[in-house]
Every structure is written in structure tokens, then in C-alpha cells.
Simulated scan of single mutants.
Amino acid sequence: MTTPALSTRDRIVSAASTLFYSEGIRAVSVDAVAEKAGITKRTLYYHFDSKDDLIAAYLDRRDQPNLALFKRWFCETEGDVADKVRGVFFNLAASARHPRWKGCGFLRTSAELANMPGHPAMKIGAAHKRRVEDWFSCVFEDADLGVHARTLARQTILLLDGSFAVVLLHRDPSYMETAGEAAHALIRGCAARL
């Protein structure tokens, strides 16, 4: 059984995703994306008005798969909500041990575009982080921990994004595991107050 060929637009986004994630958005030219996609630069600009639009499409493509992966790891982890949240961190740490791991594409892109807060990719990155926070908030509401779920979700996302940054800096995934243990203790502490 053969898989259907990707549309030209999908090939472009796939090529951009590979290059942007591995090398960074500023280091990759539109010419390099076109070459990797096996198209002309003119064809690329037929599908995208600018490199900025292509960067936004790259992040938009990562949004739902990343969130779905977090949800899957959460569901596959045995135990209570604290154990399951820690499982997300531990699975991320396992991913970070792969030699091609380059951190969170959303955070790396936001660092490269820090001086451009209105950039479409910044808006997509912020929306993605809000969706992850919203998901954590729903998880904590469903667990009925007796605390403000939104505050606990924000604390968890701070641990998560902080661990992305420190792991990338030190190349030591154990920092993500330590952040997972901190999230676990935080959630257990909330549950213990009930």
C-alpha cells in the first residue's frame, strides 16, 4: 500500500520544519528550504507570501502533534494526576536524550524573534503555550485538587518551559526529570491539603 504524495505546500512546510528545527529559523534561507523541498524559489513564494509566513506555518504544524503527544504520555503513565504529569516530564527527558533533540521549537523560535513581538510565529507560539496551559488546567480541574487549577497549570508550565531552557543550555535531560519531580511534589502537596 502506497502513501499519497504530499501536496507542494506540505512538502515545503515539511522541508522547512526539518531545517528550521535543526538549524534555527534565521540560519535557514528560503533557497535552502526550496532546495530541500525539491522546488524552485518561485514555487515556494507561490505558496507563501514571505519567509515569515513559512515560519508561522512551521510552528502551526507542530502545535497539535505536540499537544497530542503530551496527552498520550499523560494517559499512558500509571498512577494519579501527579504521577501522570511527572510522566510527561520524564518522557520529554527521554526525548531530550536523542542526539537530534534541539529543545522546544516554539521557545527557540520566540528567542530568535524576541525583538518582533507582532510576528505571526510569536502569536502561534503563544497560542500553543496557552493551549498546553489550558490542557493542564482542565486536567487539574478534573482531578478536583481543591486549588485554583489555572494557577497550578501556570506553575506546571513554568516548570516545563524552564526545564526546556536549562536542558538545552546544559545538554543534561536530568534537569527535566528534576522539574518533573518538582511538579509531582507541587501537585501532591495540593492534593494533601484536601
Rank of each mutant, 00 (worst) to 15 (best):
T3N: 10
P4M: 14
L6R: 13
T8H: 11
I12L: 15
A15L: 07
Y21N: 11
E23H: 13
E23D: 11
I25P: 05
V30D: 00
A34L: 05
K41G: 07
K41L: 05
R42M: 06
T43F: 01
Y46H: 11
H47E: 05
H47N: 10
D52S: 12
D52A: 13
I55A: 01
A56E: 03
A57M: 00
D60V: 00
R61C: 00
P65F: 05
F70A: 12
R72E: 09
R72Y: 00
E76I: 09
T77R: 14
K84M: 12
V85K: 01
F90Y: 15
L92Q: 14
A93P: 07
S95L: 15
R97F: 02
R100K: 09
G105E: 05
F106N: 07
L107I: 15
R108G: 09
L113M: 04
A114W: 05
N115E: 14
P117Q: 00
P117C: 03
G118S: 14
K129Q: 13
D134C: 04
D134Y: 08
W135R: 01
V139M: 12
F140Q: 03
E141Y: 02
A143W: 09
A143K: 08
H148W: 00
A149P: 01
A149D: 03
R150G: 01
A153N: 04
L158N: 10
G162Q: 08
L168N: 09
H170M: 09
R171W: 05
R171L: 06
P173E: 04
A179H: 07
G180D: 08
A183C: 06
R188I: 06
G189T: 07
L194R: 15
